[in-house]
Design a protein around this nucleic acid. Structure first.
Lengths: 244, 244
DNA sequence: ACCTGAACACCGTTCAAGT
DNA sequence: ACCTGAACACCGTTCAAGT
């Protein structure tokens, strides 16, 4: 969780026994996390193993446990890193109104760039990364003018929406195989049961863009939030422009 | 996937070699699934093991693989069973308008009754159980009068909302420990970073009811759906009554 | 203090062998 | 056809032992 970058914490100051840098690349939390992310990025979530990570850092597995409590913490740290980067990229992009959806889309894009991220976020919704996102969205809704009594529920729906699509990113292989032939897949998956709605929107299921669908969902939710907020509060002016 | 209940498929009819019921309880898919659900219900998701399941049915683990392809299928079958029951309980409960939220709440309640269900649903969003729910919600929105062009997006947001809170049901132990002392937990989880919104809504985080929060989210989404649908289509009458 | 690597306990899944 | 249970491959995690 701590981000201090003390790669070499007593460098040369003290006597220098033989050669202080008998290894320039001493093990450290940040180093481990960085390497873990690299493995996750190009091997998926099942590629990250304490054995593979240790090999990649040329150490023993035990050494890793000296710096990291367990795999859950390791994954949580990786998620925090990646998500923070994604969210920092959106600072001051749009006016207040658009800022919420900008944040949401940034998270979505981070999940497509790092397919393991979705699985990790949805598998541990109370991890720091998610709380961080929750806080960010809450603040943005606050700035947008959503009344206090509605902030909590409003922020929750938005976070749930990300977690919902996050779960769709589990098992990349599975998802792509689904995408290749959705109608056939759905037919086999539902095993011949009657599904009038699925049949009806079959074509959309095949041709739709996941990102568009995500943003459409965000729009719907924001519409609902403002509709209910206005209803409960003063009929204040729409507040549709940027304010900063 | 198939629900036929052929517990004994050739019972006694044929010759009766020594004693037809040398075992009344022959292994079968439904029997296995039922027992799996029982184990899941009172031991959580990590209690279900092919070893534990085999022991509980007094067979070898190999026998289970004769009826079930793998653990993923077993869990998917269990989820379908439980979710179908939950959704069948809501038939003809309310008018068209309230039917969507009735379905949503039924799913939520099923997840609190079977804490493993949330984990399973969110860990494999393309499984039959989820598709079944998706279809159900789509049909209900259709009956509600949501225009065709919006049906897909509308149903998606709702399903994502369930999947989002579903992910919150992972690791029951974790969730309860969180509930016991949320402020302290959040402080430690965020590790001292600045989280103005979390601080602001701290009290609500502690005292809120998860079910209320869920339904509040459903209301927000439905408000957004009707708002956008009305906007895109004719300004038709609110259509707020039951129609069947 | 930091690292090593064998060992432990536990999985899902397979498979030769039985009836 | 259905079942048995040992075996396999692979985990996360621990720990005595080294420097």
């Amino acid at each position: 969780m701590e981000r201090r970058s003390k790669l070499c914490q007593d460098d040369g100051m003290r006597k220098a026994p033989t050669r202080v840098d008998r290894r320039t690349d001493a093990l450290s939390k940040p180093r481990i996390v960085t390497r873990a992310i690299a493995i996750l990025d190009d091997g998926g979530i099942e590629a990250l193993t304490f054995r593979s990570l240790a090999a990649s850092l040329s150490t023993g597995q035990g050494a890793l446990f000296y710096h990291v409590t367990n795999k859950a913490e390791l994954l949580a740290l990786a998620a925090t890193d990646v998500l923070s980067d994604a969210m920092n990229g959106t600072d001051g992009t749009a006016g207040t109104t658009g800022r919420v959806s900008t944040t949401m889309i940034a998270v979505f894009d981070a999940m497509t760039a790092h397919p393991w991220l979705g699985a990790q976020l949805s598998s541990a919704p109370w991890q720091p990364a998610v709380l961080h996102l929750f806080d960010r969205i809450g603040n943005e809704l606050d700035a947008l003018g959503v009344p206090d009594g509605h902030l909590f529920d409003a922020a929750s729906v938005l976070v749930h929406h990300v977690l919902g699509i996050a779960s769709q990113f589990r098992a990349t292989g599975e998802l792509t195989s689904v995408n290749s032939d959705r109608p056939a897949f759905i037919h086999s998956a539902t095993d011949g049961a009657v599904h009038p709605f699925l049949d009806k929107i079959g074509p959309q299921l095949v041709h739709h863009d996941d990102r568009d669908q995500f943003t459409a969902g965000v729009d719907i939710i924001i519409a609902g939030i403002t509709a209910r907020a206005r209803l409960a509060h003063t009929p204040s002016p729409p507040n549709t422009h940027a304010d900063k």
